[in-house]
Simulated scan of single mutants.
Amino acid sequence: MSSSVTPANDRRAVASPHTPVRLPVLAIVVPCYNEQEVLPETTKRLCQLLSELVKGGRIDGSSRVWLIDDGSRDRTWQLIDLAAAQPDSRISGIKLSRNRGHQIALLAGLLTAQGEVLISVDADLQDDLNVIPKMLDEFSRGHDIVYGVRQSRETDTFFKRLSAEGYYRLLQRLGVEVVFNHADYRLMSRRAVEALRKFPESNLFLRGLVPQLGFPTTTVAYDRAERYAGESKYPLGKMLALAWQGVTSFSALPLRAITALGVTVSMLSLAMGIWALGIRLFSDHAVPGWASIVIPLFLISGVQLLSLGIIGEYLAKIFIETKRRPLFFIERLVGGGASGEGE
């Protein structure tokens, strides 16, 4: 996914003998949930990357790593607090008052962190940090959003690869605008984040929401590594829940499909009724009244239950959205100020 950018949007600083070059402040936003095994290595690598970018004159010296504790039950927050307290630390910590899920924790970090450029990355070190300089290059060329896109899925199991790629294709067929093989590894400019702040949705699916912003975008390809330590915080159940969230938050096609399904089942029921009538008239093997009643009854009952379930899912989303409850509360913030509280 790419868009052309005019020279007027080029963000590369133009230096003159009397004008100092102003470097962008970078904020790397990292949602964390029970990540005590991998967090020390994650903070080490991210801080090292920031130091290299600062020394190379790519970003401002006030750039920081923002770690968001999403109600962890292990020592994740203690490690964040300790890292933020170190002398000359580049770590800031945000502790949510309770577990709110990956998408809300990520949004909390984006809406709270300071910086002209914000990059979201998972804590498990599977996303290749070496492409962050490439993301910054694209930002300097005028792109407000830079998506990190996997160029292969060799580290996935056959089932994970098949289901993930099939899901992206399903979303696209349902009319949902998503970037193929992109998760939540992306760069966003400050104006893109501020535009995202104006979306008051409770049912978050950022992979579908960010493309709605409409600013200049592009992609960078990377290879996803194995998880450095610990266990995945996205088991099959959570992945299916996120997948269903993406479908029902951005497409009304399942509701429209109910009508088509109803017509199809009605035709099948009519055909079965004709078949049962034929058996009754031209055969001696039919049990009187069984086929013509039981088969259409089973079919129609199943369709009705399925239809009510889909309608109920959309009604539940309407119910949640109309409450307008805050998505998160920040319990503590360490290692730096914040640009604002979350919705």
Rank of each mutant, 00 (worst) to 15 (best):
V5T: 05
P7M: 03
A8N: 12
N9V: 03
V14W: 10
P20N: 02
P24V: 03
I28K: 03
V29M: 10
V30D: 02
C32V: 08
E37F: 11
T43N: 10
T43W: 08
R45E: 15
R45K: 15
L53W: 04
V54N: 08
K55C: 06
G57Q: 03
G57I: 01
R64E: 13
V65K: 10
I68E: 04
I68L: 10
D70G: 00
G71I: 01
L79D: 12
D81I: 09
A83H: 14
A85M: 12
A85Q: 15
Q86R: 15
P87G: 09
S89E: 07
S89Q: 11
R98I: 06
R100G: 02
H102Q: 12
A108L: 00
L110P: 00
T112A: 10
G115K: 04
E116H: 09
V117N: 02
V121A: 06
A123R: 04
L125K: 05
L129A: 05
P133Q: 08
M135E: 00
H143V: 05
D144P: 00
I145P: 02
G148Y: 12
V149I: 15
R150K: 12
R153Q: 09
E154C: 10
E154W: 06
F159Y: 15
G166N: 07
R169V: 10
V176P: 00
V176R: 01
V176M: 01
V179W: 00
F180N: 04
A183R: 12
M188E: 04
A195C: 02
R197G: 09
P200G: 09
S202M: 08
L204C: 00
F205Q: 02
F205N: 03
L206R: 01
L209G: 00
V210S: 05
P211I: 04
P211G: 07
P211D: 09
Q212L: 03
P216D: 03
Y222R: 08
R224L: 06
K233I: 11
P235H: 08
L236K: 08
A241F: 07
G246S: 03
G246W: 02
S249Q: 01
F250Y: 13
P254E: 04
A257K: 11
T259Y: 09
G262E: 15
V263Y: 13
M267P: 00
M267A: 15
S269Y: 00
L270E: 07
A271Q: 04
M272W: 13
M272A: 14
W275F: 15
I279F: 14
R280P: 00
V287H: 07
G289L: 08
W290A: 13
A291S: 12
S292D: 05
F298K: 15
I300R: 11
G302P: 03
Q304K: 11
L305C: 10
L308F: 11
E313A: 14
Y314I: 08
Y314H: 06
I318Q: 14
I318Y: 14
R325K: 14
R325N: 12
F329H: 13
I330H: 04
I330G: 05
G336A: 13
G340I: 08
G342P: 06
